[in-house]
Protein backbone atom coordinates (compact mmCIF):
# COMPACT_ATOMS: atom_id res chain seq x y z
CA UNK A 1 0.00 0.00 0.00
CA UNK A 2 2.72 2.39 1.01
CA UNK A 3 4.83 1.47 -1.99
CA UNK A 4 1.92 2.14 -4.36
CA UNK A 5 1.32 5.54 -2.79
CA UNK A 6 4.95 6.44 -3.32
CA UNK A 7 4.70 5.40 -6.97
CA UNK A 8 1.74 7.74 -7.49
CA UNK A 9 3.50 10.46 -5.54
CA UNK A 10 6.57 10.17 -7.77
CA UNK A 11 4.47 10.34 -10.94
CA UNK A 12 2.51 13.25 -9.55
CA UNK A 13 5.68 15.17 -8.81
CA UNK A 14 6.83 14.57 -12.38
CA UNK A 15 3.53 15.90 -13.78
CA UNK A 16 3.63 18.90 -11.47
CA UNK A 17 7.15 19.72 -12.56
CA UNK A 18 6.18 19.55 -16.22
CA UNK A 19 3.29 21.93 -15.56
CA UNK A 20 5.64 24.25 -13.78
CA UNK A 21 7.89 24.31 -16.84
CA UNK A 22 4.93 24.87 -19.15
CA UNK A 23 3.63 27.75 -17.07
CA UNK A 24 7.00 29.45 -17.20
CA UNK A 25 7.08 29.27 -20.98
CA UNK A 26 3.72 31.00 -21.23
CA UNK A 27 4.99 34.08 -19.43
CA UNK A 28 7.38 35.25 -22.12
CA UNK A 29 5.00 36.38 -24.92
CA UNK A 30 3.26 38.79 -22.51
CA UNK A 31 6.15 41.21 -22.81
CA UNK A 32 5.52 41.91 -26.49
CA UNK A 33 2.55 44.32 -26.22
CA UNK A 34 4.23 46.67 -23.76
CA UNK A 35 7.28 46.85 -26.01
CA UNK A 36 5.07 47.96 -28.88
CA UNK A 37 3.40 50.52 -26.63
CA UNK A 38 6.77 51.94 -25.68
CA UNK A 39 7.67 52.36 -29.34
CA UNK A 40 4.50 54.40 -29.81
CA UNK A 41 5.32 56.59 -26.85
CA UNK A 42 8.36 58.18 -28.46
CA UNK A 43 6.15 59.61 -31.19
CA UNK A 44 3.64 60.98 -28.72
CA UNK A 45 6.16 63.34 -27.16
CA UNK A 46 6.65 65.21 -30.40
CA UNK A 47 4.66 68.42 -30.10
CA UNK A 48 2.44 68.25 -33.16
CA UNK A 49 1.88 72.02 -33.04
CA UNK A 50 5.38 72.62 -34.38
CA UNK A 51 4.82 70.17 -37.19
CA UNK A 52 1.78 72.23 -38.17
CA UNK A 53 3.94 75.36 -38.46
CA UNK A 54 2.84 77.10 -35.26
CA UNK A 55 5.46 79.51 -33.92
CA UNK A 56 7.40 79.00 -30.70
CA UNK A 57 5.71 80.25 -27.54
CA UNK A 58 2.31 79.39 -28.93
CA UNK A 59 0.24 76.53 -27.50
CA UNK A 60 1.27 73.02 -28.51
CA UNK A 61 -0.83 70.04 -29.47
CA UNK A 62 0.03 66.70 -27.89
CA UNK A 63 -1.22 63.23 -28.75
CA UNK A 64 -2.09 60.56 -26.20
CA UNK A 65 -2.79 57.31 -28.00
CA UNK A 66 -5.06 54.74 -26.41
CA UNK A 67 -4.09 51.21 -27.36
CA UNK A 68 -4.04 47.82 -25.66
CA UNK A 69 -6.22 49.25 -22.90
CA UNK A 70 -3.53 51.75 -21.89
CA UNK A 71 -2.93 55.48 -22.27
CA UNK A 72 0.40 56.15 -24.05
CA UNK A 73 2.09 58.01 -22.44
CA UNK A 74 0.48 57.38 -19.08
CA UNK A 75 1.68 60.74 -17.79
CA UNK A 76 2.11 63.80 -20.00
CA UNK A 77 3.71 67.13 -19.15
CA UNK A 78 2.27 70.18 -20.94
CA UNK A 79 1.82 73.92 -20.45
CA UNK A 80 -1.53 75.43 -19.53
CA UNK A 81 -3.30 76.31 -22.77
CA UNK A 82 -1.80 73.36 -24.69
CA UNK A 83 -4.16 70.91 -26.33
CA UNK A 84 -4.16 67.15 -25.85
CA UNK A 85 -5.77 64.85 -28.40
CA UNK A 86 -6.64 61.35 -27.25
CA UNK A 87 -6.84 58.87 -30.15
CA UNK A 88 -8.56 55.53 -29.55
CA UNK A 89 -6.77 52.76 -31.49
CA UNK A 90 -8.53 49.94 -29.62
CA UNK A 91 -11.50 47.82 -30.78
CA UNK A 92 -13.60 49.05 -27.88
CA UNK A 93 -14.84 52.47 -26.75
CA UNK A 94 -12.93 54.33 -24.05
CA UNK A 95 -13.33 57.63 -22.29
CA UNK A 96 -11.19 60.20 -20.52
CA UNK A 97 -12.67 61.37 -17.21
CA UNK A 98 -11.15 63.46 -14.42
CA UNK A 99 -10.81 61.36 -11.25
CA UNK A 100 -11.57 63.42 -8.18
CA UNK A 101 -14.50 65.75 -8.76
CA UNK A 102 -15.17 64.73 -12.36
CA UNK A 103 -15.24 68.35 -13.63
CA UNK A 104 -14.67 67.08 -17.16
CA UNK A 105 -15.20 63.94 -19.23
CA UNK A 106 -14.89 63.10 -22.91
CA UNK A 107 -17.90 60.74 -22.76
CA UNK A 108 -17.40 57.58 -24.84
CA UNK A 109 -14.73 57.81 -27.55
CA UNK A 110 -15.64 55.06 -30.06
CA UNK A 111 -13.00 52.85 -31.67
CA UNK A 112 -10.98 54.80 -34.22
CA UNK A 113 -12.19 58.21 -32.97
CA UNK A 114 -10.48 60.94 -30.97
CA UNK A 115 -11.28 63.67 -28.45
CA UNK A 116 -9.36 66.85 -27.65
CA UNK A 117 -9.17 69.21 -24.71
CA UNK A 118 -7.34 72.43 -23.87
CA UNK A 119 -5.48 71.89 -20.60
CA UNK A 120 -6.22 74.40 -17.84
CA UNK A 121 -4.88 72.44 -14.84
CA UNK A 122 -3.08 69.30 -13.74
CA UNK A 123 -5.41 66.31 -13.49
CA UNK A 124 -5.48 62.63 -12.74
CA UNK A 125 -7.84 60.96 -15.16
CA UNK A 126 -9.15 57.47 -15.89
CA UNK A 127 -11.42 55.60 -18.26
CA UNK A 128 -14.81 55.33 -16.55
CA UNK A 129 -15.69 52.41 -18.86
CA UNK A 130 -12.53 50.53 -17.78
CA UNK A 131 -11.61 51.97 -14.36
CA UNK A 132 -8.29 50.10 -14.36
CA UNK A 133 -7.02 52.48 -17.11
CA UNK A 134 -5.39 55.52 -15.55
CA UNK A 135 -3.57 58.60 -16.84
CA UNK A 136 -2.11 61.86 -15.62
CA UNK A 137 -1.71 65.41 -16.96
CA UNK A 138 0.95 67.60 -15.41
CA UNK A 139 0.31 71.23 -16.38
CA UNK A 140 3.08 73.76 -15.80
Amino acid sequence: MRIRSWGILKNSMYILFSIFLLCNCYDSPKKDPSARGAANDTNNHIPKGEALGIKKGQPHVYIVSISEMTFHPKAIKVHKGDTIIWINHDLVAHCVTEVSNKPWTSSAIPSGRSWKMVVIQSSDYYCAIHPVMKGKIVAE
Binding site: P33, E68, M69, T70, L91, H130, M133
Partner: peptide, 11 residues
Protein backbone atom coordinates in the same frame (compact mmCIF):
# COMPACT_ATOMS: atom_id res chain seq x y z
CA UNK B 1 -7.12 37.62 -31.26
CA UNK B 2 -3.96 39.39 -30.13
CA UNK B 3 -5.89 42.66 -29.98
CA UNK B 4 -8.62 41.02 -27.90
CA UNK B 5 -6.20 39.71 -25.27
CA UNK B 6 -5.48 43.07 -23.53
CA UNK B 7 -9.24 43.77 -23.48
CA UNK B 8 -9.83 40.50 -21.63
CA UNK B 9 -7.00 41.26 -19.22
CA UNK B 10 -8.44 44.70 -18.41
CA UNK B 11 -11.84 43.06 -17.85
Amino acid sequence: LEKVLPILKAH
